[in-house]
C-alpha cells in the first residue's frame, strides 16, 4: 500500500483559563504540570504543526477562550475556523461557577462545527478534576457528562429539524445522512495520568495504518514471548499502539498505559535537567529492568519516531533473545517514520 502525509485540523476550544494551552504544552512541548502556572491567556489562535509519527501532521488550533475571541470565531471567522476540522477538543473547567453559560457557549461551537465539518469527532474534557475531592470525583464527572450529553443531543435534535425543514423546502437536492455527533467524554487533570488517557484516545483514531501496526506488534509479541508491548510516540510519549498476552491481560491496572506515559515523560524531564539538553530532545536510548523471578522489561529507541517498551517473563536467555529480535523487527515498522511513500510487505 502507498501512504501519504495526512494532515488533521484539531481545534482546542473552551473558556479562558480552562487549561487548553496547559495540556498542549505538557503533551507536545514537555512542560511539567507546574510550569503551566506561568502561561498567560492565549491571544486569538495559537497555531502549531505537530509532526506525529512522520506521516501525520496535526494542525493544532489552540483558540484563546476569552469572550471577545469566542464571539469572533463564531461570527467573522466562522468559516475559516470551523471548516475542514477533523477533531474538536472542548475543555470545561470543573471549577467554573457559570455552568449554564459555559454550556451555551459549547452549544454555539457545536452548531458551527456541524455546519462546516459535519464529520468531525468531538472530545469533551471535563478538566481540573484534581480540584474535586477524590471520593466524589467519579460522581461529579458522571453528572457533568450526563448534562453535556443531554445538551448535545438536544442541540442535535434541533439541527436535525432544521435540516429536514430545508430538505422539504427543496426536495430535489440530495438528502444528507442523518445528522449525529461522535462524542467522547473524559475526566482530566494535568496533575495525574488522566491527561494521557484522554489524549491517547484522541490521537488513536488519527494514526494512519493503525491496523498494520497492531498486526505487526502482535506478531512481534508472540515471536518473542512477551507479556506486553507498548509503542510510544517519541515526543508526547502517548501510547500509539499496544499488544498484551493472555497472561498480561490479568494485570489489575487498567490505567497502566497512561501511567507509563506519565512515568516516562517525567523521567525524560529528569534526564533533560541532568544533561542540560532541551526538553524536547531525545533523553534516553535504553532502559532495562529485571525484577528477579517476577518479570523483566526494557524500553528502547525503536524507529525514528517511536520508543518501544517490552514487558517479558523473567529469564536471561529469553530477555537477550527478545532484545535482538526487537532490533531485527525495526525494518517492519519503518513505515511509521514516513512520509516517504514506500511499499511495505506484510
Amino acid at each position: 500500500a502507498l501512504k501519504k502525509v495526512k494532515k488533521q485540523k484539531v481545534l482546542l476550544m473552551g473558556k479562558s483559563g480552562s487549561g487548553k494551552s496547559s495540556m498542549r504544552s505538557i503533551i507536545f512541548s514537555n512542560y511539567l504540570a507546574r510550569d503551566t502556572r506561568r502561561l498567560g491567556p492565549t491571544i486569538d489562535v495559537d497555531l502549531s504543526h505537530v509532526k506525529f509519527l512522520g506521516n501525520l501532521t496535526l494542525n493544532l488550533w489552540d483558540c484563546g477562550g476569552q469572550e471577545a475571541f469566542m464571539n469572533n470565531y463564531l461570527s467573522q471567522q466562522r468559516a475559516h475556523v470551523f471548516s475542514n476540522v477533523g477533531v474538536l477538543i472542548y475543555v470545561f473547567d470543573i471549577e467554573s461557577r457559570e455552568v449554564e453559560r459555559d454550556l451555551a457557549t459549547y452549544i454555539n461551537i457545536i452548531s458551527a462545527l456541524v455546519q462546516y465539518s459535519r464529520e468531525a469527532k468531538v472530545f469533551v474534557l471535563i478538566h481540573k478534576m484534581d480540584l474535586i475531592q477524590p471520593v466524589t470525583r467519579e460522581d461529579v464527572f458522571e453528572k457533568r457528562a450526563v448534562l453535556v450529553k443531554r445538551k448535545t443531543a438536544e442541540a442535535v435534535a434541533i439541527m436535525r429539524k432544521q435540516q429536514q425543514h430545508q430538505q422539504s423546502q427543496s426536495p430535489q437536492s440530495p438528502s444528507n445522512p442523518v445528522l449525529d455527533i461522535d462524542l467522547q467524554l473524559f475526566a482530566t487533570s494535568i496533575w495525574d495520568q488522566s491527561l494521557y488517557k484522554a489524549w491517547a484516545s484522541i490521537i488513536h483514531d488519527l494514526v494512519p495504518n493503525l491496523s498494520v501496526i497492531e498486526t505487526q506488534l502482535a506478531s512481534l509479541g508472540m515471536a518473542i514471548d512477551a507479556d506486553e508491548i507498548l509503542l510510544f510516540e517519541r515526543t508526547s510519549f502517548l501510547v500509539v499502539s499496544k499488544w498484551t498476552s493472555r497472561e498480561g491481560e490479568r494485570n489489575p491496572y487498567g490505567d497502566r498505559f497512561e501511567r507509563m506515559s506519565n512515568i516516562l515523560k517525567s523521567w525524560k524531564h529528569t534526564c533533560s535537567k541532568y544533561t542540560g539538553t532541551p526538553r524536547n530532545a531525545e533523553q534516553f536510548s535504553e532502559f532495562e529492568y529485571k525484577m528477579g523471578t517476577t518479570f523483566s522489561m526494557f524500553a528502547t529507541k525503536f524507529t525514528t519516531n517511536t520508543y518501544i517498551l517490552v514487558c517479558m517473563p523473567p529469564g536471561e536467555a529469553r530477555f537477550n533473545a527478545a532484545k535482538l529480535n526487537v532490533a531485527a523487527a525495526r525494518p517492519w515498522f519503518k513505515f511509521l517514520d514516513g512520509p516517504v511513500t514506500v511499499a511495505h510487505s506484510a
Binding site: Q283, F284, E286, E288, K290, G292, G315
Partner: peptide
Amino acid sequence: RLEGAPWHQPLEQQVACEWAESGMVLADA
C-alpha cells in the same frame, strides 16, 4: 510454559539475580 520446553529449568535458575536490577543509558551515551 516458561519452565517447559525448550528451557527445562525452574525460573529461579533462568535468572541471573534474584533481586531487582536495572540499568539505563542516556541518549548521549
